[in-house]
């Protein structure tokens, strides 16, 4: 019951193209959940289906325990969303937009609050046809948040935002989540997502490949890489190879750290071999490499399963 959004065995096709395969997951209240996967994986389709924009073949979608269908979806009053790109009427001002989509109690207070939080005062009273890409994006985010809903669904929210606006948005998302708002955010800007999301849904070719927490994913793929800058990279590589250290195909000299004493061993080897070390950096496990690894593994598994089935 604590789940604000529950999706069970959702299947969705466009004609005979099966886009979502048995998608099931629950969102925990108050968490920021990242939805990640390659282009065409089905992220936007999943979000649109959850919002009653698409018909689906089978399965169920529940928001706060109430079913959502394209025809009927009263529970969406608890949801705010921005999908793909913001829809904006060029002949209305930003303020008009917020007024149009504000709902429920305290509308005026909510509108003023969101304008202030996203720093939109300077342009909110202007007609939207003169907005820049980032202004439109901000307005779209403001429209998703203006009712301070319990669940917020954002598809590529950082699109076109400058660093300052990105930070404002990040702060806003974090502060709202601390007050109990649940966020489902899809993004290809993984560094940003890594700073935000607690949970992760990894989707590929319309299937949920893994539902995990950010911490677990980073830890599981937590191999550390040591990056070296030397006065003779070629020689360094040769020495490392001879001593059977694992290097990466990267053009820079990178060694995979198997244990805590890998670094001292490498340093000793190189110094004794007459190579000067100019700089050493440890690369922490990051979301990008972890995600690529998960996707690679799942594709290999899928291929094996397909071959076995033959």
């Amino acid at each position: 019951m604590s789940s604000i959004l529950s999706v069970q065995n959702l299947n969705k096709s466009f004609g005979n193209k099966h886009v979502l395969h048995d998608v099931s997951f629950d969102l925990t209240k108050g968490h920021i959940v990242g939805l990640v996967g390659p282009n065409g994986a089905g992220k936007s389709t999943l979000m649109k289906t959850m919002l009653g924009l698409f018909n689906y073949d089978s399965g169920s979608i529940e928001v706060a325990g109430e079913k959502v269908t394209p025809q009927k979806h009263e529970s969406l009053s608890k949801v705010g969303a921005l999908i793909e790109y913001p829809g904006i009427y060029p002949f209305l001002t930003g303020w008009d937009h917020l007024q149009l989509f504000a709902d429920g109690d305290h509308q005026l207070i909510h509108i003023q609050k969101i304008i202030q939080q996203l720093n939109m005062d300077s342009f909110i009273k202007r007609k939207a046809k003169g907005y820049s890409l980032g202004m439109k994006q901000k307005l779209g985010i403001a429209l998703a948040l203006v009712n301070f809903p319990e669940l917020v669904i954002l598809d590529e929210p950082m699109n076109g935002l400058d660093p300052e606006a990105t930070k404002e948005l990040r702060d806003l998302i974090i502060s709202e989540s601390q007050r109990g708002t649940t966020f489902l955010i899809s993004s290809h800007i993984l560094s940003e997502l890594q700073r935000l999301a607690q949970d992760l849904l990894i989707i590929d070719e319309g299937r949920i490949v893994q539902q995990t927490t950010m911490h677990d994913l980073l830890a599981s793929q937590g191999k550390q890489t040591i990056m070296l800058m030397t006065n003779d990279d070629k020689k360094a590589r040769q020495l490392l190879k001879k001593a059977k250290f694992t290097t990466t195909p990267d053009p820079r000299v990178e060694v995979v750290a198997k244990s805590d004493d890998t670094l001292p061993q490498v340093l000793r080897l190189l110094v004794e071999g007459g190579v000067d070390i100019l700089d050493v950096t440890r690369l922490e496990g990051n979301l990008e490499s972890s995600l690529l690894e998960v996707l690679k593994q799942s594709r290999i598994k899928k291929k094996l399963a397909a071959e076995q089935a033959e």
Binding site: L51, L53, S77, G87, Y89, F101
Partner: peptide, 13 residues
């Protein structure tokens, strides 16, 4: 204007 989705994903049927 791409506003149809916004108009639709509200509580109204």
């Amino acid at each position: 204007y791409g506003t149809m989705k916004q108009v639709l994903y509200r509580r109204y049927s």
